[in-house]
Amino acid sequence: MKCRELAEFLFDYVSGDLAVERREHFEFHLSKCGNCHEYLVQYQMTIKAGKIACGDLSDELPKNIPEDLVKAVLAARKI
């Protein structure tokens, strides 16, 4: 397996959907190729970063909906 193929199979690998034989080839390549290993780590960190940055604990999440929007929603319901 070449790095190019590893990048192609990365999605299925992290989803746990790679067939056994292909997974073995994938992991063998990983064990020999530091650059691919680093790419895998960063790919996984990217997925995690999105979850953390936009997750429920994120400070961006307003605890309360803006007051004028509450009023607008309730008013629109009565129309």
Binding site: C54, V70, V73
Partner: peptide
């Protein structure tokens, strides 16, 4: 309902 869930939906 609007107050409780609105913030999450807005995000």
């Amino acid at each position: 309902v609007v107050r409780q869930y609105g913030g999450r939906l807005l995000a």
